[in-house]
Design a protein around this nucleic acid. Sequence first.
DNA 1: TTGTTTTTTCACATTTTTGTCATATTTGCC
DNA 2: GGCAAATATGACAAAAATGTGAAAAAACAA
Lengths: 226, 226
Amino acid sequence: MKKSKIMVVDDEQRMRKIINDFLTKDGFSVVEACDGEEALDKFYADSDIDLILLDIMMPKLDGWGVLKEIRKESKVPIIMLTARGDESDELLGFNLGVDEYITKPFSPKILVARVEAVLRRTQGVGSKDILETAGIVMNKLTHVVTVDGKAVEFSYKEFELLAYFLENEGIALPRANILNNVWNYDYYGEDRTIDTHVKKIRSKLGEKGKYIKTIWGIGYKFETVD
Amino acid sequence: MKKSKIMVVDDEQRMRKIINDFLTKDGFSVVEACDGEEALDKFYADSDIDLILLDIMMPKLDGWGVLKEIRKESKVPIIMLTARGDESDELLGFNLGVDEYITKPFSPKILVARVEAVLRRTQGVGSKDILETAGIVMNKLTHVVTVDGKAVEFSYKEFELLAYFLENEGIALPRANILNNVWNYDYYGEDRTIDTHVKKIRSKLGEKGKYIKTIWGIGYKFETVD
DNA sequence: TTGTTTTTTCACATTTTTGTCATATTTGCC
DNA sequence: GGCAAATATGACAAAAATGTGAAAAAACAA
């Protein structure tokens, strides 16, 4: 597998050096930027950056600004470097598409582990055949679903629908989209049939059925929070 | 991606020609206006102008005047063409909603780069999915709203209405416009129902509810000043 | 074919949202 | 201040969307 290229954005030269050393030692290639504007320039100039480590506090354009700019046109994984214990920041960030946080100060081990975890999550192999969230494991090849390790039977349509939910975790899915993606394009029935399937899936998922949220006036959303 | 249409407003015929040539060569389509009044006319007549390049010094109605007029009802990106080194101008402009400055004289490269950067910023992917102002973050994809990091529930209509406000931040929205944009065209109820929804949104926004200003005799305006 | 399973429809209960209305309050204007 | 018009608010009713169980229809297998 080709080495991943990582951009490190931090205004402190010392911090950049430390991170660069850790990552280089671990086989990554590294690009540095010392402020937000430089980060954007380099990101746009260099199209094969696989992940960005982004400090929040920076002159000119801070980490949030960079994040927002980049998220307008790229889903490149971004890890924010944040000062200890600012939790409101974290909430804001997840909404804006932050993949992970690392709290300063951090150990080399943590840094490398997080970077690798995020890369695995975002560009992992086989991620199309096996879906996994919150104890629900769907194997698209064998068509087997387990919930907390116990096998549960799903009919064809139920399986397709649940897979569609998991593939779009966290996204509010309008009924029309669900029909277009899970049913054939030549289906002209009621969209209420979705409700019936959702009912069955929820009951088969047992306790975890609540993760299929109803979005009133829109459709459904799979989300593993209570 | 469809070519963007750009309006060039400058009283010097030579300058218009130069800019027009640069932009056309780069694949944009160009509309010219030779003074402020013509600019307004053409802008209102032609609804699909994507960006305006606006000279400040002009007869009849100068750049600031045009800017202010347009900003009353549109957020179309505007780049001001300014003489070298007038920094007080720049401050004024950003307050009035200028997206970018280009200092004369400029190179073709700068011109095209700035235009493209602004377009990327304003019409990039995802820029439609996340709205953010003053600690209010609306994610259209997940249908989640957070206020200062805390999730707040909004019903379908409330969500649509708040999104419409944020998309038109700073612009006074007549009730009729709100109905046309947020309600279906086949809605024939009272327009006072907007008031009721505004009431609910304000209360859900808590402290920040005051940012939805009442424009007496017209409608409402979302504005993050006290 | 017959019997079984899956998918869809339907009717009714339930929940949530949306719109209306009456009343209170505010605003602009004389 | 006082008046008229516009807006704010709370309560409530109407409307719309969803949940649910059962039955009909369709697909499938033997």
